[in-house]
């Protein structure tokens, strides 16, 4: 879970805000998106969905393999 929270911070507050000016030097290959801007308006949201999906799968699996004590 800590790792997933780290990813949450990394993609949104990190890539979208803290390092946005550095990342804006690059473009998402083949598109008009500056990379930092893309993370702020699209990439962060996509990563949020994936994080919650991975969390749901992993935790529900953990619940099944460790039945109630």
């Amino acid at each position: 879970m800590t790792a997933l929270l780290f990813l949450w911070f990394f993609f949104s507050l990190g890539c979208g805000i803290l390092w946005v000016e550095y990342l804006n030097q690059f473009h998402l290959p083949g598109t008009g998106f500056k990379l930092g801007f893309w993370f702020a308006q699209q990439g962060s949201i996509i990563s949020f969905v994936l994080i919650v999906l991975i969390y749901a799968i992993l935790m529900n699996k953990a619940d099944q393999t460790n039945p109630k004590k």
Partner: peptide, 25 residues
């Protein structure tokens, strides 16, 4: 977002990123 440009991202990230906290914590 249309008038704010990049700064409009705070609403996009803020109003979706909260769900990650909600779902995980």
């Amino acid at each position: 977002i249309s008038t704010m440009g990049y700064a409009g991202s705070v609403y996009l990230m803020g109003w979706t990123g909260g769900f990650v906290l909600l779902a995980l914590c």
